[in-house]
Design a protein around this nucleic acid. Structure first.
Lengths: 124, 124
DNA sequence: CAGAATCCAACCGGATACTG
DNA sequence: CAGTATCCGGTTGGATTCTG
């Protein structure tokens, strides 16, 4: 449901169907748009990955961040956490079927992003 | 270019092809993943919209935010700003051809987001 | 290995008031 | 109308240290 602007009989402009609070785009972004969230999900697409491997894959993110985002993704049902009884203990993270439904979008974003002009590469 | 984990001849695990700093997913997110950014772009998809209309469409965002994001989108070439010489002055924002290349995955995000279970609707 | 705990500066972003 | 300016509390997220 999108917002629209129309004119009434007297020519006054007004917004019809205002986006009632966060529209779909915004809601989605709040779920997978968080810092590192998309990357984490993406790196799980080929199968389970262990914590430290994951944090190495995602250069620039601290373990603290990885943990926080993983917990969030887990509580939302996008990712599953599994403890393996090895010594020392190791933990696997795996994308769920539900989480996988976001991969299509992420892939499109990736393609778009890779085609971007150099000039847009974030300095930071 | 994705990161991969492999095992060497001695069975030790190691990360091959680590994501050199922000991978494509992350870079993309930094551009259109900002708060309100996606929504703004999306609401421009059907043609030029004026500032106040835009801010009404995007419920919950302050004018300050809208302005900041628009400036950012403009400097990145995703949006074009045009001042109309009316009285009082009015300003139009329009998506550029380049900006429009992002509409594809924004739409996917929208579809994904709309299909989400109620339980995931952010309380905030 | 896989975190949890703590600290803290930086930034974010809403509210409010003002302007040409 | 389309912003700008200022204030300011809250959150973010990196660095670092510690643990079972």
């Amino acid at each position: 449901m999108r917002a629209r602007v129309e004119q009434d009989a007297k020519g006054r402009r007004q917004v019809v169907e205002a986006c009632l609070e966060p529209c779909a785009i915004e809601k989605g972004m709040r779920i997978i748009g968080g810092k590192w969230t998309g990357s984490i999900l993406w790196h799980l697409k080929d199968g389970p990955v262990r914590f430290n491997d994951l944090s190495r894959m995602i250069g620039g993110a601290s373990k603290k961040m990885i943990t926080e985002r993983l917990r969030q993704l887990e509580s939302q049902g996008l990712v599953r956490r599994e403890v393996l009884d090895t010594a020392p203990v190791s933990v696997q993270y795996e994308i769920t079927d539900f989480g996988a439904t976001a991969l299509g979008f992420l892939n499109e974003l990736r393609l778009w992003s890779e085609g971007l002009p150099q000039s847009m590469v974030r300095d930071e």
